[in-house]
């Protein structure tokens, strides 16, 4: 089983063996973070460009650390600095960057399809770090790795994803990944935050938090963004957190004792998660972050470290 794609754009297009390959590779690379000298020479001489149009400290830093631990040269382009702010189009920026011969471009953008568009136009590999509400493949991969580490397996597990599913690329990527690996997914939230026709993707839908979190092995809470109120999708944060916020009481009343609480971060403490749950014993949020670096190392290694993917380019 080898990685044969030039890019990592979506989970939807991967088959289960490819997903497993990335997670297995990530698990093997994780120990690098535990060494005293956190470096291996694998991507020495390779250039990785982080092209982040949306503000994101944690994902960008995660990719940066991953690249540096593999000895790559990592360059960061952030939206607020550079010509991006001057109105240069995404395509122009990417072409200019390509002229500097990077090996991989990691892109995060607010428009769905942006990564796919870049991948079509750039010769080098493209990693989608989040395109609008479409997909965030490395997030789903690190989530799957985290669950597998804790539960020992993935097949047959039940997961509830709670919150603003409609606008969530994390939800979409996880739904695809989990379904492919034999997990059952329920999405839960007020109807205005559930996307139309979501059942077509093989998930169950719930509009009550208590029902959704009962009997599941994993509860993944999503961030609720301020903008959803102004768009008239929910009346107030207060009402949302009253009916959809996960508190310790709710957890104890309905969920299993061995349930895992996950969140892609950053957490709005007091809105979707109470502080006791976010920082409590059920939470694996910090493990997700650690696994994030391992998964991103795996992705960079598979895309840039061997000839196979380069030939696909």
């Amino acid at each position: 089983m080898a990685w044969k794609r030039k890019d990592l754009l979506t989970i939807q297009e991967l088959d289960p063996a490819e997903i497993t390959l990335v997670i297995d590779t990530a698990a093997s690379l994780r120990e690098i973070g535990g060494r005293e000298i956190k470096k291996v020479p694998t991507l020495r001489g390779k250039t990785i460009v982080n092209l982040f149009y949306e503000p994101s400290t944690r994902t960008r830093t995660s990719f940066e650390i991953a690249g540096k631990w593999l000895s790559a040269d990592v360059i960061n382009f952030a939206a607020s600095t550079s010509s991006i702010g001057k109105g240069e189009t995404l395509l122009d920026t990417a072409r200019n960057i390509e002229a500097m011969s990077p090996d991989v471009v990691v892109v995060r953008h607010s428009s769905a399809g942006a990564a796919e568009m870049l991948a079509r136009h750039l010769r080098c590999g493209v990693v989608n770090a989040g395109d609008g509400a479409h997909e965030h493949p490395t997030q789903a991969l690190l989530d799957l790795l985290t669950i597998r580490e804790r539960k020992g397996h993935l097949d047959g597990l039940q997961v509830a994803i709670v919150g603003d599913i409609a606008h969530s690329r994390v939800a979409r990527s996880n739904i695809h990944g989990m379904r492919k690996l034999g997990m059952t997914v329920t999405v839960a939230g007020p109807p205005t935050l559930i996307p139309p026709h979501v059942q077509e993707f093989g998930v169950k839908v719930s509009h009550r938090l208590e029902d959704a979190i009962r009997d599941v092995d994993v509860i993944m809470m999503l961030r609720l963004q301020q903008e959803r109120m102004t768009a008239g999708l929910i009346p107030s944060l207060r009402e949302y957190s009253r009916y959809w916020g996960l508190t310790l009481d709710r957890l104890r009343a309905s969920a299993r004792a061995d349930v895992l609480i996950m969140h892609p971060g950053p957490v709005n403490r007091g809105v979707e998660l109470s502080p006791e749950v976010a920082d409590g014993p059920y939470s694996v949020i910090l493990e997700q972050t650690g696994n994030g670096v391992a998964v991103r190392m795996a992705v960079l290694f598979l895309l840039a470290g061997t000839r196979v993917a380069q030939e696909a380019a």
Partner: peptide, 15 residues
């Protein structure tokens, strides 16, 4: 258009 495809692609759809 708002439908299964718009949900899949993460694009806002018009019903």
């Amino acid at each position: 258009n708002e439908g299964t495809v718009s949900t899949e692609l993460g694009l806002k759809g018009a019903p």
